[in-house]
Design a protein around this nucleic acid. Structure first.
Length: 126
DNA sequence: AAAATGACTGATG
DNA sequence: GCATCAGCCATTT
């Protein structure tokens, strides 16, 4: 399976911690698309906890290999300090997969991930 | 228990 | 568009 949280059938009620739900949703962001911390929180069933999403990403286990660089703030900008190593890294990751970044900003009108809710819900184990 | 800390947000000027 | 600000919330001091 390609998804790090893939589970065999029958585990619908599998209990996932809040962090695991966040990681699960982040893993679903398509290459070439971005989404905000707040939206990830919503999709993970944690409305109002955008800051918790950033924390969860920072604490994500290496082995999950999550596309954390596709998560930006609601203003469509990279949240790291403009002159930081992480900012440069995230910008490079995005550009590499075809997402234009100008002055730290991404055009949400064109590159925001807007999943079909009905479809997405069915792929979530929670 | 109280205060500080953030990879956040929405409103405001 | 950009800078401020107050509000937000789990976690750590």
């Amino acid at each position: 399976m390609t998804h790090p949280f893939y589970q065999p059938q029958g585990s619908q009620s599998q209990k996932l911690t809040p962090k695991e739900r966040i990681w699960f949703v982040v893993a679903l962001i398509p290459e070439g698309k971005v989404i905000s911390y707040g939206k990830i929180a919503d999709l993970a069933g944690l409305p109002g906890r955008a800051r918790y999403v950033s924390r969860a990403l920072k604490e994500a286990p290496e082995h999950l290999i999550l596309p954390w660089h596709r998560v930006i703030n609601s203003q469509g900008k990279i949240s790291f300090d403009k002159y930081s190593q992480m900012f440069q890294h995230q910008m490079q990751c995005l550009r590499t997969e075809g997402v234009p970044v100008n002055s730290g900003k991404i055009a949400l009108s064109e590159f925001e991930w807007r999943p079909e809710m009905a479809t997405l819900v069915m792929s979530l184990p929670f």
